[in-house]
């Protein structure tokens, strides 16, 4: 086994362990919540005690806790998420479209902002002290620290209500009833609805990447190896490219982690723009104590973060030759 394979195997094992821990925590926390999914039905008086017992037996909720836990583990690790209690349809059928909706909004936004803001960050870091640097830092920090719903509402007021350029709400217009993903997303109507939330999320994420890239380049700017590059006769832009390449690691790590967290959606943004994403769905499910739905959603989110971490580690080892994959203390 090569050193890299061993490193990978080790990281994989750790990831699997982490997943198990995360899954167990979800299980326990949900059971600790007061009440049960049927409480509302019972208080409404629609169900008899007899019926409740039957339904509980049907969902296996009458079994001892450890047995519930075991069967939960078994199914969730096989990606069998079961039936939603309140919606009476398979959990995956509820979650999948919401997840796709969220990803189609946030992944392009994140990639766009990671590329653009990092490049801008590197540029302003290289030209330290310029007006552009100050302006970009102030602007992105402002956007980053303002809650996203405020920026969102502001944009809605300006572009949707006052200028009436784009619709304020939803993913498609109310009259549209598309079938399947292709029909939903491949239309001008969708693009029309897409622009505003996309722009807001790009701006929201931009600050972190800009600052990371800028700081990296500022730190590298005075370094000896850049002086040697300069002495070799590299042009200003080539030098900047080397400085940027050398400060890529934190950006890469941050990107991978953000990518993992995207699976949680941007709940506030989804609410403001009426975007049918996974974040909104999760909030609803928790309110209603829809165990299977919450468990599945949280499992997917945890898994995404863990996988993103793993990817970040592997990328790190690939992009920085000085990172030792053997994990020994010597490096």
């Amino acid at each position: 086994m090569s050193e890299f394979q061993r490193f990978l195997a080790k990281r994989l094992a750790i990831s699997i362990l982490l997943t198990l821990v995360a899954v167990s925590v979800i299980f326990v926390v949900l059971r600790l919540l007061p009440g049960s999914p049927f409480e509302s039905l019972v208080t409404a008086g629609n169900l008899s005690q007899q019926q409740i017992t039957e339904i509980r037996a049907m969902y296996g909720l009458d079994q001892p806790m450890w047995r519930q836990y075991l069967s939960y583990l078994q199914s969730i690790l096989l990606f069998q998420f079961g039936y939603s209690i309140l919606r009476s349809q398979p959990v995956w059928g509820v979650l999948a479209p919401r997840l796709v909706n969220t990803l189609i909004l946030l992944v392009p936004a994140l990639v766009t902002t990671a590329v653009l803001s990092s490049l801008l960050g590197m540029y302003v870091g290289w030209n330290r002290g310029s007006k552009l640097e100050k302006l970009s830092i102030i602007a992105t920090t402002f956007l980053r620290s303002t809650p996203v719903f405020i920026t969102g509402i502001l944009f809605v007021i300006i572009f949707a209500y006052n200028l009436e350029l784009v619709p304020a709400f939803g993913m498609r217009s109310i009259s549209a009833s598309p079938e399947g993903y292709v029909e939903t997303f491949a239309s001008l109507d969708f693009l029309h609805h897409y622009i505003l939330p996309f722009t807001v999320s790009v701006l929201y994420y931009s600050g972190d990447f800009l600052l990371l890239a800028r700081n990296g380049v500022v730190e590298k700017r005075g370094s000896e190896f850049l002086k040697l590059h300069r002495a070799k006769g590299l042009s200003e832009m080539q030098q900047l490219a080397r400085a940027g390449r050398n400060s890529m690691l934190p950006i890469l790590t941050y990107f991978a982690l953000r990518l993992g967290m995207i699976f949680q959606g941007l709940i506030l943004l989804e609410v403001v723009f009426g975007w049918p994403g996974i974040g909104r769905e999760l909030v609803l499910a928790i309110q209603q104590q829809d165990y299977p739905l919450v468990q599945a959603a949280v499992f997917i989110m945890a898994l995404a973060v863990i996988v993103a971490n793993l990817v970040a580690d592997v990328l790190y080892a690939y992009f920085d030759p000085t990172v030792s994959t053997s994990g020994g203390g010597a490096a």
Partner: peptide, 17 residues
């Protein structure tokens, strides 16, 4: 005109062979 820099330890680009 070529240049041999002062600190050999840091004057090579660490992420370039």
């Amino acid at each position: 005109i070529a240049y041999i820099p002062q600190s050999a330890m840091d004057s090579l680009d660490p992420v370039m062979s």
